[in-house]
Each structure stands twice: as C-alpha cells, then as structure tokens.
C-alpha cells in the first residue's frame, strides 16, 4: 500500500474513532467540570474512562498529525522547511501520545 493511500485510510479510520471518542469526552468533561481534584482523579481512575481516554489520545494525535501534515504540504512551499515541519509535528505527537498514556497510568496506579 502506498504512503498516500495509507495516509488517506488512517485519516478516515481515526476520524470514525474520534467521532465516538471526542463526543464521549466532550460530554464527560461537561459533566465533571465542577468536580473537585479528588473527584476528577477518581473519574480518570475508573477503568473504562482510563482506557477510553488513552485510546482518545492515540487516535486524536494520529488524526491531528495527519491533518496538520496536509495543511503544511498545502501552505509551506519551501520543500526543506516543509519536510522539517512535518518531522517536528510527527515526533511531537508521538511523544505526547506516549507521555499522556504514562500520565494516565500514573494516575491509575499511584493516585
């Protein structure tokens, strides 16, 4: 499968995942917005929320980096700068995905 086809398909698959997860997260954040620190911690600690939140970070950072890559390809005409920016976006999003899952694990295990 060529890279372009892979990009196209991943963008759609992550979109469908986000359709469900972002909707769930928006509603949940709305419900817990006035909660105290301890109540918010116990919300994250509930297994279903922790799993959904982790999957949300994976699919949305993937969707974000694929989307921003297209935006950069469209508007940055300097080829070298374009390539560097795409590398920055990709490495930043993968590091943030890893970090966020570690942070969720920390809350679940240690808090």
């Amino acid at each position: 499968m060529s890279n372009v086809v892979k990009h196209w398909k991943l963008q759609r698959y992550s979109a469908i995942a986000n359709l469900i997860l972002a909707f769930w997260l928006a509603i949940s954040i709305l419900c817990i917005q006035n909660n105290s620190f301890q109540e918010t911690i116990s919300w994250v600690k509930s297994p279903l929320n922790a799993i959904f939140l982790s999957i949300f970070f994976i699919t949305s950072f993937l969707h974000m980096s694929l989307g921003l890559q297209v935006v950069i390809e469209d508007y940055v005409s300097n080829i070298l700068l374009r390539k560097r920016l795409i590398v920055v976006i990709k490495s930043l999003s993968w590091s943030l995905v890893t970090l966020s899952i570690l942070l969720i694990l920390k809350i679940v295990i240690l808090n």
Partner: peptide, 17 residues
Amino acid sequence: FLSLGLLAMFVFVLLLA
C-alpha cells in the same frame, strides 16, 4: 484550532497527574 484543544487536553491530564 482543535489541535490546540488537544494540546490543552494533554495539559489537563499533565496537571492532574
């Protein structure tokens, strides 16, 4: 604009942790 929102969600989890 939502990329910034996702970054904010990350900061939310970071501060919570």
